[in-house]
Structure formats: structure tokens, C-alpha cells
Design a protein around this nucleic acid. Structure first.
Lengths: 348, 348
DNA sequence: ACGCTCCGAGAAAACGCTTTCTCATGATTC
DNA sequence: GAATCATGAGAAAGCGTTTTCTCGGAGCGT
């Protein structure tokens, strides 16, 4: 029991500002001032405080700090599915960029449950200084209503009517047209668009783009096939694709294209000799498929870091509601080996 | 300055508990009681409070709540690189499992900067109720010192001497031996291990496993080649692999294997006819490479959800320092098409 | 020397919530 | 019918910071 009196409450309580204050023989206000360098403090006292803080390994409690300052130095991101490489990339870019400015990222995965997205976003917003929202399937009306309550908000691949919410989007319509154009210029005449989830905003954009393409190329046959947004749905479409008789396939995205590639390979259909396949997004794996995938590259890494920049701008100009940048990226064609001129069709 | 004028920033202030209390004509204590259902409240009053809360769309401020309760309902995860599918999967599993219990995940990407990991982890811990730490390269001594300060802590692929920190690990030594064994039983006699980052704990485990393999199979030639942990490093090793003359390649992980696969394909080396390649991890893409990759599957999805379960156990039994589970997973062989019997070597 | 301004540090208020403490009121018991 | 109890709501004390307010004391000019 020699050290019985030393029953440290340290064991159950973390060291707080009060402990430092006591040790340094000053008030906790002064400790705060020293730690934040906000007001002028006598250099001697400051040194004493710093010494005490160092000795006790004092680190301010962020929760107390957040309450007092009204900010958490944290932003939230809502994604529909963390298994999707696109969102992974956005998350990563966002997290790294935000970290550079001393911000952290809280993640909310809606697991594709559209009805949860608004709730998750609201919750995230309450905990954080802002929210990045990826909600491709949320109804327009709901988004429009939700957006103002979330302010500092950055939208990914969605826009609102009000122009005070910055948004980052990709011109999917343009990209899919260029891909179709690419196939046509290789000599393909029968194309299939293997579409994504029905209510996805970006799928709608692709459809609009393809309508335009059709108008410009009435001579080209373009079929629509329903699909999903992942590997498996691409794989499952293999038979339908083969049955379609088309030689050029526009897959919804790289994931779908890869699933299809693997399905075709299993069936002994050669790519690109028998069928050409294109993806969309240019996820990191796209250039390592066999054959490497022709795709429309969206600047997947930039997206995250730009999202942070837009967020930071809003956080800094807190209050004023100015009109915000609406960034739109044009995808860059990435021509690889999964597309080529079609074999000469036997006259039929 | 004019005090009265500045007095209320009510205009942009969020609705707080006080507003609800005023509207319902009760004290804010009562509002809190109603919201949390903690104590008995007169049903009539409770209804009035709920009505007021609903009308004002009141949602308790989580920061205030956290300060009062001493918990944030948030856990942190520290990962070395969010671009790595393994960590993405862990993050995803963790996030989904935690969400089910009403917890959120804060992410900290150390960007492979080992020296930052301890700081990030500490910071995360202060903001959260616990930390999941993935720090494959952190020095043992540093980890040992850091662990107690982080408690509620779950370690991934690392262990501490003290047994009160739960850890989840994969038996990489076992897995790599089985892969080597698989190649040998196919008839390969000259193998190469394309190693990962030098200071990676899991790489060391593989090396230990291979030492054992060597002891048991003195007749097999097993070379070591230095590499990294991603696509590009696999791709860059292509020449060295070809030059080695080996027919069976044990890549550090699936990423490396995929990079190598693509390199070999470019060079016209056929897999598995000319060279067999194995990966490790069984990331989702592994079964879609051409040829599909033989690999040692680690239950990548379970890892995240189990991490949460271990974390929750600790959070619940706050205080008592009991000895914690050390989970070790044995990888499951996933034999696909990237391995086959070697072609008969020309007598040389 | 006297009053003036500055400066720096402690006291106290604020941040938004939960929870203990306290006390009134009405019900229960002998 | 008085004493005891249970009930439920308000007052107030935290939680750990930052920041405003206040005030003593030092420096300066006249």
C-alpha cells in the first residue's frame, strides 16, 4: 500500500485542461490561450504551461472543442455502395485532400437503400461541418427538398435547380456518344447498350446521349438491354449479348464490362475479334483486364479532391449564399484493346 | 459596438432543445427525458413535447450529446492505403456492421507514411469511442507502446504481447505454403516468391512460411524476388520473372499477380501454359482476370464485420480488462485457371 | 505624483445536451 | 386525518473547451 494515496484518477479519467492548469499554477483559460496561441500570454507563463502540457501528454478533447467552436473539423460523405470502385476512389481522394487541411471524413454507406439516404445525410450533417452526397437514385424532388437543409453540401453527379449548391458531374451523355462513335468508326453497325440501374441519374444521361446518337446515325442499329451496375450483372447478360447478334457492346460501366468480358471468355467468344466491348469510368483495373478495356475515363481521383475544394470554399465563406461552381467533366476516350474492327460478316 | 444588435444570431442558429422546451412550455430537462425515454414523464406532457419537437423538426445536437454522455457513437479506422482493395473491403464490412448498431466510422488514411500512423490513431481515438488499426509496417516496439493508449482497440494483422487487445489476423505463412504446395503437386520444380514491402508484417509471415516449406522440400528451387504490393510493382517485375526461368510464381498478393499477368500477356508469355501464377487475398477482381487467378482467399468481408464485433465487445465491457480474443483466419485455397502443370522442359 | 491607457490573467459565461438533486403534489397507509 | 411515499418536473450541476468580461498592475505622459 506504499503508494495507496496515489490512487490516480488518471486511470479512469483522461487528462484535461484543468490538470494542466493546476500543474502550471494558472487558470484553465490561460492554458487554452497558450494551446491555441490566440491571445498574448507572458512568455514565461506560456513556457510553464507548455511544459506542464507536455509532461502530462495533454491533448485537448475534440468534443469539448467542437462544442465551444461550433465546428467539428469533419465532413461526411454519403455513398450508395462502398464496394463500387468509383465511390472508393472519390472517398479516397476526398479523404486525402481533406486531411491536408486538417479535416477528417465520416462515412455513411446507404447500401443502395435509397430511402435511407436522406436520413443518413441529415445525420451526417449534424455531426459534421458539411456533407458530400452521392445519391444517384434519389428522386429529384427529394433531393431538391433535402439540399438546403444540408448546406455546406457538395453533390456528385446530381444538380439542383437552385444554383447555390456546388456539384461535380461527369458528362455521361457525351462520353457514351463518343464511345458509340468510336465503335461506328471502326466499322460496327449493330450496337447494344447494356444499361445500368433504371433510376440511376447517370444512366438517364447515357440514354439521352444515345438518343442523340441515334438521331445522328439513323443507319446504325442500337439495341437496349437492361442490366445492373456490377460485375455479376455484366456476367449474367452474356447470353443475351451473344443472342443480340451485335458486334459492339456499350457496357454501363467498367464493372459491367469486366463481368461481360469474363462471360464472353467462358463462352469462347473472342474480344475484340468477335465482339468489341467498351466500359465507362476507367477504374484502375480497366487497363489490366485481358484485353485491356476501351473506356471513357472519368478523372476519378480528381473528383474527390475537387469535391473537397468546393466544400472548403463553402465552409470558409460561411454565411453568404453565393452561387456555386457547377463543375462538369468531359470523359476522355481511353482506346485500348477490347475494341477493334468487326470481322467481316458472312453475307446472310 | 452595439450590443443589442449583435445579441442574437438566432437567424442562422439551429433549433435547440431550449426552443422545444419553450414551445412545449416545459423545462429543457423534460424535453431531454422525453427524447431519450429515460425517466417517466406524464403522457400528456410527453405528447406535447413530441409534438413541439416534430413541428420544429428538432434533432438533438450530437456534439452536445457526446460531451454529456462521454461517447461519440463513432469508431475510427486507420488504414495505410485506401487504394488497396483489402482495406477497402475491411472498411466496408466494418462500416456496415457498425451502422447496424448505430455507430459510424471515421476514416484516417496514413498514405503509407508509417511515421504518421501513431499520431493519426491517437487523434482518431480522441474523437471516437475506439479505433481499428491497420498498420502493417509499424515497428513492433512502437505498436506495443501505442496500443494501451488506444484502448478500445482492434488490431488487424498485428498482435501485441499483452493479451488484452483483440486482434484479427490471417495465417499468411500457412496460405503461402499451401500455394507453394499446390504448384509443386502440379509438377513445378522452380518457384519464385515475388515478395512484398520489406517491413510489412504479413510479408515476414509469408517468408517464415516459405522457410518452412523449403525445409520440407529441399528438392524444390525457390528464388526470392523483391517487389511491392500493388499492380505496378507486379508489372515491373515481369522481366525479372521471365529471366528467372521459374515456372511457378507466388505473387505477394492479387494486385501484384494481376500486374504480372498483364505484363506476361504483353510479352506473349502464356499463363498457365508457360508460367503459373498465384495471388493472395482473393479480392473481388481475382476471379475475373484472364485467366482467373488461383489464390489464397482471406475472408475479406468477414474481417470487417468481425472487427466491429470485437470492438463492440470492448465498448460494452468498458473498464474491465479481460483477455481478448485473438482471431486467426486460415486462408482457403481458391484454385482457378492461372495455375496448371508446367510444360515439359526441353532438356538443357 | 497622479491619472491615463495597455496588457495580461483569472472569473465566469457560453456551447447543447444529460442527469442528479430537490421539492411540490397527490396518493397511500395506519 | 396526519404521516409516509411515490411520482414527476424544474433547477442546477456537470461534460471540456473557448471566449468574453473584468480587473489589478505596470508603463507612460504631464
Amino acid at each position: 500500500m506504499g503508494r495507496g494515496h496515489m490512487a490516480r484518477r488518471n486511470t479512469n479519467r483522461r487528462v484535461g485542461i484543468a490538470d494542466v492548469a493546476e500543474k502550471a499554477g494558472v487558470s484553465h483559460a490561460t492554458v487554452s490561450r497558450v494551446m491555441n496561441g490566440n491571445a498574448a500570454v507572458d512568455p514565461g507563463i506560456a513556457a510553464r504551461v507548455r511544459a506542464a502540457a507536455a509532461e502530462l501528454k495533454y491533448q485537448p478533447n475534440p468534443v469539448g472543442r467542437s462544442l465551444a467552436l461550433g465546428k467539428t473539423d469533419t465532413i461526411g460523405i454519403v455513398v450508395p455502395d462502398l464496394a463500387n470502385p468509383t465511390f472508393q476512389a472519390i472517398l479516397r481522394g476526398l479523404s486525402i485532400a481533406a486531411a491536408q487541411d486538417g479535416y477528417r471524413v465520416l462515412i455513411a454507406d446507404s447500401s443502395e437503400v435509397t430511402s435511407e439516404e436522406a436520413i443518413l445525410a441529415g445525420e451526417a450533417r449534424r455531426r459534421c461541418d458539411g456533407v458530400v452526397l452521392c445519391a444517384p437514385r434519389m428522386a429529384d424532388a427529394e433531393l431538391e427538398e433535402l439540399a438546403p437543409t444540408l448546406h455546406p453540401l457538395v453533390l456528385i453527379n446530381r444538380t439542383t435547380i437552385a444554383t447555390n449548391t456546388p456539384s461535380l458531374s461527369v458528362d455521361y451523355g457525351q462520353g457514351i456518344q463518343e464511345l458509340a462513335q468510336h465503335l461506328v468508326s471502326l466499322g460496327h453497325r449493330r450496337l447494344v447498350f447494356l444499361s445500368g440501374p433504371e433510376h440511376s441519374a447517370s444512366n438517364r444521361q447515357r440514354l439521352v446521349g444515345l438518343d442523340q446518337f441515334r438521331a445522328e446515325h439513323p443507319e446504325i442499329e442500337l439495341q437496349m438491354l437492361h442490366g445492373g451496375s456490377n460485375f455479376d450483372s455484366g456476367h449474367e447478360s452474356t447470353e443475351a449479348i451473344i443472342a443480340s447478334g451485335a458486334t459492339g457492346i456499350l457496357a454501363f460501366n467498367d464493372l459491367v464490362a469486366m463481368g461481360l468480358l469474363s462471360g464472353l471468355h467462358e463462352r469462347g467468344v473472342r474480344v475484340p475479334e468477335d465482339i468489341s466491348v467498351t466500359g465507362f469510368d476507367d477504374i484502375p483495373f480497366a487497363k489490366y483486364t485481358t484485353p485491356p478495356l476501351t473506356t471513357a475515363a472519368v478523372p476519378i481521383n480528381e473528383l474527390g479532391s475537387l469535391a473537397w475544394r468546393r466544400m472548403r470554399e463553402q465552409i470558409q465563406q460561411a454565411g453568404e449564399t453565393t452561387t456555386q461552381a457547377q463543375d462538369e467533366f468531359s470523359p476522355r476516350m481511353e482506346i485500348r484493346k477490347s475494341t477493334a474492327a468487326p470481322a467481316l460478316k458472312p453475307a446472310s
